[in-house]
Amino acid sequence: MQQLLVVGDIHGFPETFVELLDVGSFEQRVLQLADLSGRPGLRGDNLHDHLVKKDGLQHAVRALRETNGPPCFGIGFSSGGTALWSAVKEGLEIQALICVSSTRLRFETSPLNIPTIVFWGDLDPHRPTEIWNDAVPECCKTYAGKHHDFYRVDALAPNSPLRTDIGAFIESVSGLHSGGPAPAR
């Protein structure tokens, strides 16, 4: 059984994981940024400040690198995706990475050595430029009319474009087959 390592956002989404994927058989492991950063009581802006203005992100990255288990797929929501990206850069071994609304990735300057895809809402004012999207991640997709936190509904809604695109990416990387194409840039 393949494993899906999920890292939530600063608000604790997802607290527990409803079946996200409509492909394959995945054991899902959900980790919270607050726990990973060493401050389990923090949420929202307080957690964001701890991550970006203090050493919380470094703690989260270290905790992710020490995560035991077989190689897996990583999916991170917002700052959770940024933590996963940084952990991969520092040695976390996963098969592929999916980042949803991880806008702080705009500060990354080079691609990872694994398959990556990023998803954005086009109304998110902090998403990276198209130049960045063409240079750093392997694939990207921007959803029209969507804000930063669109994933809170779309990740859980059956047959949503986000769920379909996540599934297609995982299928394309893992060799599973659903008959659908991988998501386009």
Results as ranks from 00 to 15, higher is better:
residue 114 I to S: 07
residue 119 F to S: 07
residue 122 D to E: 13
residue 123 L to I: 04
residue 159 N to G: 09
residue 35 D to K: 10
residue 122 D to N: 13
residue 52 V to A: 00
residue 74 G to T: 12
residue 178 S to H: 05
residue 49 D to C: 02
residue 12 G to S: 06
residue 163 R to H: 05
residue 53 K to D: 08
residue 90 E to I: 12
residue 129 T to H: 01
residue 82 T to C: 08
residue 63 A to D: 04
residue 106 R to H: 06
residue 10 I to Y: 05
residue 89 K to A: 15
residue 71 P to E: 15
residue 142 T to Q: 03
residue 161 P to F: 03
residue 45 D to P: 03
residue 157 A to R: 15
residue 177 H to G: 11
residue 19 E to V: 14
residue 6 V to G: 05
residue 10 I to W: 07
residue 34 A to F: 03
residue 2 Q to P: 04
residue 109 T to V: 12
residue 80 G to Y: 09
residue 78 S to R: 02
residue 109 T to N: 04
residue 147 H to V: 10
residue 55 D to R: 11
residue 106 R to L: 07
residue 94 I to F: 08
residue 23 V to D: 00
residue 170 I to Q: 00
residue 2 Q to T: 12
residue 1 M to R: 09
residue 177 H to K: 15
residue 19 E to T: 15
residue 122 D to M: 02
residue 105 L to N: 08
residue 16 T to R: 14
residue 57 L to Q: 07
residue 18 V to S: 14
residue 50 H to N: 01
residue 173 V to H: 01
residue 171 E to A: 11
residue 13 F to N: 03
residue 179 G to M: 03
residue 112 L to Q: 06
residue 154 D to M: 12
residue 166 I to W: 07
residue 170 I to K: 02
residue 59 H to Y: 09
residue 143 Y to K: 10
residue 78 S to M: 03
residue 11 H to N: 14
residue 10 I to R: 04
residue 48 H to M: 08
residue 182 A to R: 12
residue 178 S to R: 01
residue 5 L to H: 07
residue 179 G to L: 08
residue 28 Q to R: 08
residue 94 I to R: 09
residue 45 D to I: 14
residue 24 G to W: 00
residue 107 F to V: 10
residue 52 V to K: 03
residue 132 W to S: 02
residue 133 N to E: 11
residue 110 S to C: 12
residue 57 L to S: 02
residue 37 S to W: 03
residue 103 T to L: 00
residue 25 S to P: 00
residue 99 C to N: 11
residue 68 N to Y: 10
residue 61 V to S: 05
residue 101 S to M: 09
residue 135 A to S: 13
residue 148 H to E: 01
residue 29 R to I: 06
residue 142 T to P: 05
residue 111 P to L: 12
residue 66 E to I: 06
residue 95 Q to F: 13
residue 92 L to P: 02
residue 162 L to F: 02
residue 99 C to K: 08
residue 68 N to V: 14
residue 171 E to H: 06
residue 113 N to P: 03
residue 137 P to Y: 06
residue 165 D to C: 02
residue 175 G to C: 09
residue 29 R to Y: 05
residue 4 L to V: 07
residue 26 F to L: 01
residue 137 P to A: 07
residue 135 A to E: 13
residue 140 C to K: 12
residue 2 Q to Y: 11
residue 98 I to R: 07
